[in-house]
């Protein structure tokens, strides 16, 4: 049996931006540029990077809320980027998404019951009486009470709303869930609850997860493997602990050094990158990180490094990984 549930193949998304009037010059934001990765069944893949690096775009391409410019997403052996819209609708229930902002992700005019039941109604999965039972059941599983069915989203707190978002994604028994910054809009105390809930549900529903976050601690806690992104590309891909303990890319090293450690006496070398992230409209030639990399050499400005296996099961896109982090 094939162990790989989902494979992204050279995924690319350019957004057109129009500038200038009347002579419009068409320019493109290189949001995601040639990203490939695989996701095993019941694996949690963390995607981490700063804002604007394309991680949310990847998440939305995987569930096909955004059409990729090129490349494909193969889910369970089927290229879903090539599916016609009608066929796609049936596939949708196998991959679901949880959104970042729990205040925007629930329709304010519907009751919680209607929101959670909507997928069942759409896919005509069960009868009216069964719907009620399944919704009640699932609300309990995400730590809510069936009494909440009659409530409206505005009556709930952010954490509760996020639980509703999770319940809505789960009710169709999906195989893969993309969690797009699922906790970054929540209070820190609630973040842990929601993360643990996701972890428990992952076991119970035998889910695979793509966890998108800008928070390295969240990612390390929640994922099996981690993909680090910079300017629309994956720069490093390895097991979560490997990425944090033994990073092989200068950008990851800088990112990890920024993670706060809960020990005031811990001496840490803090790597401060100079300058800003270059514009994704005009990404630098060669290695995209070379403009800010403390170890940049002439070769980096001309030749784009491939994502390659620098150690066993540890991929990095840097020409000098071995020399720097042997």
């Amino acid at each position: 049996m094939n162990d790989i549930l989902l494979r992204a193949d050279n995924l690319t998304k350019y957004f057109a931006v129009r500038r200038g009037f009347p002579a419009r010059r068409l320019r493109q934001v290189h949001a995601v540029d040639g990203v490939s990765f695989g996701l095993r069944r019941q694996e949690v893949l963390g995607v981490v990077g700063e804002s604007g690096c394309g991680k949310s775009t990847i998440g939305r391409m995987v569930v096909r809320l955004i059409e990729p410019t090129s490349g494909k997403v193969v889910f369970d052996g089927v290229d879903i980027t090539a599916l016609a819209k009608r066929d796609l609708r049936n596939w949708r229930r196998r991959l679901q998404i949880i959104f970042q902002d729990p205040y925007s992700s629930l329709n304010p005019r519907l009751t919680i019951g209607s929101i959670v039941a909507e997928p069942l109604v759409i896919h005509k999965l069960c009868t009216k009486t069964e719907i009620r039972n399944r919704v009640a059941d699932l609300l309990k599983k995400v730590g809510m009470s069936p009494d909440h069915m009659r409530r409206y989203p505005h009556e709930l707190s952010g954490g509760q709303r996020q639980r509703i978002g999770i319940a809505r994604a789960l009710i169709v028994n999906p195989e893969l869930i993309v969690a797009d910054e699922p906790v970054s809009a929540l209070d820190v105390s609630v973040q842990a609850q929601v993360l643990n809930l996701l972890g428990d549900l992952k076991e119970e529903f035998r889910l695979s997860l793509i966890m998108i976050s800008h928070n390295m601690s969240v990612i390390q806690h929640a994922s099996d493997r981690v993909a680090v992104m910079y300017l629309g590309q994956i720069v490093e891909l390895a097991a979560a602990d490997e990425v944090v303990m033994a990073p092989c890319h200068p950008y990851t090293v800088a990112l990890v050094s920024a993670v706060p450690v809960p020990d005031p006496r811990a001496k840490k070398e803090r790597i401060l990158l100079k300058g800003d992230v270059p514009s994704p409209i005009d990404p630098p030639a060669g290695c995209r990180f070379h403009t800010r990399c403390p170890h940049a050499k002439p070769r980096c400005a001309t030749e784009q490094p491939e994502l390659r296996e620098v150690r066993s099961a540890h991929f990095a896109a840097c020409h000098f990984s071995e020399e720097l982090y042997a």
């Binding site: 229930r93 998404i97 992700s105």
Partner: peptide, 10 residues
């Protein structure tokens, strides 16, 4: 997002 969610739900 709730519109996107509805689309994602099929």
């Amino acid at each position: 997002d709730f519109v996107q969610a509805a689309v994602a739900l099929g």
